[in-house]
């Protein structure tokens, strides 16, 4: 059995986000912050330095009033599946790893030396640097989740697809004496919080999971596909202008390149 095939046997966790259903309410972002002990500061309006593992972007069709339309695009880490995942390739200290059994790109905070090469490499701006010590008001320290360690100043962090929940699901499966993990056993915090049902999470390799079917929808696309990063986060939209913004027309340009060649 070749290596690639062996990998395919394992679950490959991924996400499908329906941008037509997404209402931009931001429950996903807030759920993520509460789940993953993300610190908050008095002023968080400098978005380049504000840590939001899952950021909700506003995009618009660029037309003038009253033909303007806009939509929201939640962006977690895309958990690139290519052999040359941008962040992994550049990390000098092996602080980033792709899970062989789940495909999840993880960040090993104790190893991270804070050089931020990965941030420069990530085409999705999904990585964030801890510029400051995380500080909580005394009372609010009580709400920290013990499943996720608090990151100190000086390291890079990002969405982990709530990897700790997978660990719990695995432990539970072991206790129950079963091998497989059911779709509902492992769901990310953002998926659970989505009132609109726009975020769907599961094993992209498992035909019984919703994401398996949804990713093959004709309305499905991924961000910056031309880069061949093979993100495991898919988006759905029936609106053409939304789909086009996924790669700023890069894909079409790429197709033209290929034809030209």
């Amino acid at each position: 059995m070749d290596k690639a095939h062996e990998l395919e046997k394992h679950p490959k966790y991924g996400m499908v986000i329906d941008l037509d259903k997404c209402t931009g309410c931001g429950a996903c972002t807030v759920a993520c912050m509460e789940e993953n002990n993300i610190p908050f500061r008095k002023d968080e309006t400098d978005k380049l330095r504000s840590i939001t593992w899952l950021r909700v972007y506003r995009i618009n069709n660029g037309k003038s009033y009253p033909d303007t339309e806009y939509a929201y695009l939640p962006r977690p880490c895309q958990h690139c599946d290519s052999d040359h995942t941008p962040c992994i390739s550049v990390c000098p200290v092996n602080a980033i790893d792709k899970g062989r059994e789940d495909g999840i790109i993880s960040q090993v905070h104790p190893r991270c030396i804070g050089c931020r090469y990965c941030m420069a490499a990530c085409p999705y701006h999904a990585r964030y640097f801890n510029w400051w010590d995380p500080v909580w008001p005394k009372e609010m320290k009580q709400m920290l989740n013990p499943d996720v360690s608090v990151r100190p100043r000086g390291v890079v962090e990002k969405c982990t697809f709530c990897h700790h929940r997978l660990k719990r699901a695995k432990a539970q499966a072991m206790m129950d004496g079963r091998k497989e993990i059911h779709e509902q056993d492992y769901q990310t915090a953002c998926t659970q919080a989505c009132s609109a049902g726009a975020i769907v999470f599961g094993d992209l390799n498992n035909p019984e999971h919703m994401v398996y079917k949804l990713k093959t929808s004709p309305n499905a696309f991924r961000l910056l596909e031309k880069l061949r990063t093979e993100p495991k986060v898919y988006y759905l939209s029936t609106r053409k202008w939304v789909c086009q913004q996924a790669d700023n027309g890069l894909l079409e340009a790429h197709k033209a390149d290929v034809e030209h060649a």
Partner: peptide, 26 residues
């Protein structure tokens, strides 16, 4: 100690959905 608020799907009103304020209510 409470650490997180999540939606309860048994309510027909929110059917497992929750808003940012509901989560951050903690």
């Amino acid at each position: 100690r409470p650490v997180k608020i999540e939606a309860n799907a048994t309510s027909p009103v929110n059917q497992g959905g929750i808003c940012p304020l509901g989560i951050a209510g903690l």
